[in-house]
Design a protein around this nucleic acid. Sequence first.
DNA 1: CTTAGCACTCAGAGAGATGGAGTGCTAACA
DNA 2: TGTTAGCACTCCATCTCTCTGAGTGCTAAG
Lengths: 346, 346
Amino acid sequence: MNERKLKILAAIVEEYVRTGEPVGSKAIASLPDIGVSAATVRNDMALLEQLGYLEQPHTSAGRVPTISGYRLYIEELMRPPALPDAERERLDDMLEAQGPLTEELLIQNATTALAELTQCAAVVSDFSPKFSVISKVEVIPAGKRVYVVLLITSGGAIKNKACRLEFDLTNEQLGMFSEYLAQNLEGVSVADLSDERMANLTAAMSAYMMTMAPLVQGICELSRDLRQHALLFKGEKNLFSYEDLDKMEVVRFIEHKDELVKLLDDSFSGIRVMFGESDDSFVIGNSSMIVSKYRKGDHNVGSLGVIGPMRLDYAKVIPYLEYFSQKITDLISEDAEAPPKQDDPT
Amino acid sequence: MNERKLKILAAIVEEYVRTGEPVGSKAIASLPDIGVSAATVRNDMALLEQLGYLEQPHTSAGRVPTISGYRLYIEELMRPPALPDAERERLDDMLEAQGPLTEELLIQNATTALAELTQCAAVVSDFSPKFSVISKVEVIPAGKRVYVVLLITSGGAIKNKACRLEFDLTNEQLGMFSEYLAQNLEGVSVADLSDERMANLTAAMSAYMMTMAPLVQGICELSRDLRQHALLFKGEKNLFSYEDLDKMEVVRFIEHKDELVKLLDDSFSGIRVMFGESDDSFVIGNSSMIVSKYRKGDHNVGSLGVIGPMRLDYAKVIPYLEYFSQKITDLISEDAEAPPKQDDPT
DNA sequence: CTTAGCACTCAGAGAGATGGAGTGCTAACA
DNA sequence: TGTTAGCACTCCATCTCTCTGAGTGCTAAG
């Protein structure tokens, strides 16, 4: 397995990605930095096929990379160029968008940008709010016997929910209750707001404030929301323009979010590339998914992924993905240390 | 243009909708309630073709309805069965879902349900919040120099936004400001919160409370959000399973939301059916869009629509659409009269 | 006005025929 | 031993041709 054979493999992958047609020996031999004849290329191709990196759709056709071929290419052969500064700036612009940057918004922007840039579907499974701290709990009267509970986290997430009580609260009751909530919840990590803890809270309190049970329940739900990871999908539409993806499979896959979540949350670090095989749980034929983890401090708190045809320009897409997940890691980790440290946009 | 010819037209539309194949005279003649021979049917079909209600893909094929054919069928011929009680209950269940029913949630559920039921794309353009009343404005400190402004409407919409100030506010300032906002905004219709009015508010106030400008600006943005109609799209994926729709056209159409909004907001009452023609602004070939308005009190406040293939079971879909828009009208109009009148779900 | 009969049309399926891109193999060459 | 030119071979894609049958329009009889 010499240098040249690897070079030929890389060339075949790149050519196939570019054209979508099986690649013949002649096309490769005519590339500037190959410098051997088509016959030689043919010999090497036969070998690469034996090793399982290439295959022929039929006898008299050119070669197409196999999954192993792509994998070898991605892991060893491709040389993604470093992102030029101008490009980095452009990406940063896409992230920043309007207004103060909450974690949620940041992640949304990244997903949208990724879908846009790659012309693929972008997906993110985020449970970063879980690693925030409750910075504020508030109960706000909002009409007859209706109260809005509001939870704000250090990450900038704001959640609210309307609750209905049996009776109206007196100012005194409301004040007492607010005080109690502040004492017991503010400064607490979202991850620690287990249902159990909330149940204790309810129990401890409802003894003498039965009527407020729905409010506590509301807060429970909000905290559950925060602990749960959010799944965000953008650019599904892009997938439908690829001829070599089966529309039915795509639709089925998009609808089975639980499967997808499993794949995304699978624990690993850095970048992982998966290929759609019918025996795997990632079932879109001829497609691949590239997933990158991002962190908050020392925890993995989410996965950012791109789903596209297997015939994908990995050398272009992977740097984008790496850049975004690193950027997200940086920005939300920074928040974690010095809570609401957003620059004033004005 | 006698009775029988219309019956034949209806039969052809229904048969074509069912099978997707051009319909021949024989198939029609063999239907139980036709009772004439194929030759007679043929004569009638030739006439219907002359009148522009039918066309032939080619000489020796059966007939297919033209757009005029569909239109006549929808407006005069079809006899949609009244929804049986069991069906109504099922639809109601789909609407109600979890928790207290805010207007927003109601409309979301309706859209999802419609997409599900019809296996088409469902879309809604909603500006019902515009016809609500602000029931609560609140400013909540949420960290160093960060404040969350919160707007609650009589329709149950809750909007919030974090703002950053130059300085922290004293309790006194905060109290005064809150009081001022309550005085000037609570009870005011969202429609009346014009940018102009908000500007006046800012001007009147900032004279002696300059530092709060970002908060007022935040409220401005929230109120603008409320006044703007929301566009909600569900089940786009369904469109991709129809063979006779062009994927590219679908994607393009979905992406040009402004065009779609124009079509939806076009003023009319009741139900309207549009057909995709390349010269129209609704450009998906072989498709149709059915739109129904819903009201809040006396105002049209939104449009609920279904987009699917032209070959659609109108007699099934239209009653659903009518039912949902009527239901939405009833529920949100009720809210408008007696603001937060939701039944307690517990 | 309706119907049976009949000649006519034409899309779509299937069967060859053709071309060309690409291969593997062999033998010569460096 | 590795590389290259030459050549026979394979087989997909494309085209043409034919054939079939569903469906038509027209005519003449009921």
